[in-house]
């Protein structure tokens, strides 16, 4: 069991006053058997209490409706989360062939269709010219995914600001650079091409251990493995997800997990700052 302290700050400044706005923030650590929220508090520049309700995948979404003019939006979250130690290397009793049969069965494909249908952000271009590993019945799914994780890690180089949240895979594969979202989207896309259910995950990653992508919110992938359930892969770091990862939410792609969505009435520009601090409690 490890305990993490999380601080998340978002600050948006607007050139012209915003008449009214709706904000949705998806930044609260998820509640699941592996992580328990010990403490949680937040504050918002509108002075009102945050309203929390489930989003479409059941994760806690914070919403604020502001109908008085403002030029600055500031939101802060403080949380302490307890994460269970887990061994990411789990073993299934199924043979590769049995596994393959389950995955390719009609019912399995239909039940998991949301994470099998390509989205605009996970659409694989037809002419990328890259020989991604192909999932076959001779190999266990877990081994295949390790191979894929490694492959994508080597294929793309991590490069902040090289892409934005709307960059399609086509572009990422052309420049062979990206940030954690892009690693995740490419991973998901290859899985879905191989008819393996895969979902996008956003979350926090422990800082100070030389992980890539820890200074911001991180992104990784969960893949459904028969018998084992959803298992996390982080292609950005070529790692399996373990107790250094704190999940916020999952969805079909980045758009289901964007940390902040705002719909505002304003004419001018905005600038946006995010600050993420994740510390092991002992480090404090």
């Amino acid at each position: 069991m490890e305990t993490f302290y999380i601080e998340y700050t978002i600050e948006n400044n607007y050139e012209k006053p915003v008449k009214k706005a709706n904000f949705g923030l998806l930044i609260l650590p998820a509640k699941n058997p592996f992580q328990t929220i010990k403490e949680q508090s937040m504050c918002c520049s509108d002075g009102k209490e945050s309203f929390i309700s489930p989003n479409i995948f059941g994760f806690d979404l914070i919403t604020h409706y502001i109908d008085k003019p403002f030029t600055r939006f500031l939101f802060k979250l403080f949380a302490t989360v307890e994460v269970k130690k887990l061994n990411p290397f789990q073993i299934t009793t199924l043979s590769p062939l049995e596994e393959f049969a389950i995955i390719t069965s009609v019912d399995y494909q239909i039940d998991n269709h949301l994470f099998l249908t390509s989205t605009s952000l996970t659409k694989m271009p037809w002419n990328h010219g890259i020989w991604f590993p192909v999932y076959r019945s001779e190999q266990s799914l877990f081994d295949y995914l390790l191979e894929l994780n490694n492959f994508i890690y080597k294929l793309l180089s991590y490069s902040p600001q090289s892409t934005n949240v709307d960059t399609p895979i086509e572009e990422v594969l052309k420049i062979k650079k990206g940030v954690c979202q892009d690693f995740a989207h490419v991973f998901i896309s290859v899985c879905r091409e191989n008819k393996i259910p895969a979902r996008y995950v956003s979350g926090y990653l422990i800082q100070g251990d030389a992980y890539i992508g820890a200074s911001q919110l991180h992104a990784w992938v969960e893949v459904l493995i028969p018998e084992l359930g959803w298992v996390g892969f982080d292609a950005t770091n070529n790692l399996l997800v373990d107790n250094n990862y704190i999940k916020i939410a999952h969805g079909t792609d980045y758009r289901d997990c964007s940390p902040i969505v705002g719909v505002l009435e304003t004419a001018g520009q905005q600038n946006s700052k995010h600050l993420v601090i994740v510390k092991n409690q002992q480090q404090q």
């Binding site: 479409i56 009609v106 019912d107 239909i110 039940d111 269709h113 949301l114 099998l116 249908t117 079909t252």
Partner: peptide
Amino acid sequence: KKLILKDKVVPADLIFSSKNYLKEMV
């Protein structure tokens, strides 16, 4: 439950590939 798709009366692809099929309604 998607029984009609599992029973292959209507092709699942036809439904899931439709832009009018909304994940918000699942």
